[in-house]
Design a protein around this nucleic acid. Structure first.
Length: 270
DNA sequence: AGCGGAACCTGTCGGC
DNA sequence: TGCCGACAGGTTCCGC
């Protein structure tokens, strides 16, 4: 579900409300969401104060007032809800009770989401294996070309690989490739340096615009407290199969790549 | 090494 | 109406 712009929106909104708050207790409704026994988890997190919230790739990172971090991945359907009282909610998987009476609910229909605790964030394997941020200065056409030089996968597949660029998902991959006028099925080593340059440029452009719109709400993604993003109003290809391309009027194609939908214009994208 | 497919879990939608 | 398969914004594991 949420990609970089959605996760960043949630970071921004949670920061405004929970920095400085202390977790008084925690209720775990679904054990598979957390990375240890519920007893150990509750004990570790009790009386911790939130000092900052940040994002790496699609991971949310909550920092506390001691050497402890909570690392959350929302996967497809995870979201956070802040409420004064916890009405019984079928999909509330973990409920954090804060010192100001608010409850922060981790809500996740499909239960793919994960919550982990770490006492040494620099040694967290999954975070360590992430590629660079799209706005990282180290991301240049030349560095990308070197990193991809022996790859055989399509450019769409490479965009979804979090160890190369972190934060892109299925919606923005299609939108970025349309903006860059690159065929998603193209083997990545066949791209020219100027196409790689355009790819990086389009990535930053699309993500910045999505962020400005608080993300894309199609079905499940919600901001904190169920508010919706608005970038769905600006999508040009995702979910638009059969509709005319905004540039050349040719119907948008929908294909499957690695079991996932890709949308593109076969005329504009080469 | 790195690719594609299956699996994880739950809900919804479209077709017959 | 009812059932059944396909599909959903992600990642990990496995076999090749």
């Amino acid at each position: 579900m949420p990609e970089l712009p959605e996760v960043q929106t949630i970071v921004n909104e949670l920061s405004q409300t929970i920095i400085g708050r202390i977790i008084k207790s925690c209720e775990i409704k679904r054990d598979s969401v957390i990375d240890r026994s519920s007893t150990d988890f509750r004990r570790a997190i009790r009386n911790c104060k939130f000092t900052s919230i940040s994002r790496k790739g699609k991971y949310l990172i909550f920092q506390f007032d001691k050497p402890l971090w909570m690392i959350v991945h929302l996967r497809m359907t995870g979201k956070f809800i802040l409420v004064a009282d916890h009405q019984e909610n079928r999909y509330g998987r973990v409920i954090f009770k804060l010192d100001n009476g608010l409850q922060m609910i981790f809500h996740d229909v499909r239960c793919f989401g994960t919550i982990e605790l770490s006492s040494d964030i620099d040694k967290h394997k999954k975070l360590f294996s992430l590629g660079c941020d799209p706005w990282d200065k180290a991301l240049t056409p030349e560095s990308l070309a070197i990193k991809l030089r022996h790859r055989k996968a399509s450019v769409k597949s490479i965009l979804l690989n979090q160890s190369i660029i972190a934060g892109l998902g299925n919606i923005y991959a299609s939108e970025i490739l349309f903006d860059a006028k690159i065929d998603p099925t193209r083997v990545v080593t066949k791209l020219t340096l100027s196409q790689l340059k355009q790819l990086i440029k389009s990535t930053k452009k699309i993500l910045a615009s999505a962020l400005k719109n608080n993300g894309t709400t199609i079905s499940d993604y919600r901001r904190v407290d169920d508010k919706q993003g608005t970038f769905q109003n600006f999508l040009k290809v995702y979910g638009k199969q059969g509709e005319p391309c905004q540039t050349c009027k040719t119907p948008i194609q929908k294909i499957k790549q690695n079991q996932r939908s890709t949308f593109f214009c076969k005329i504009c994208q080469r």
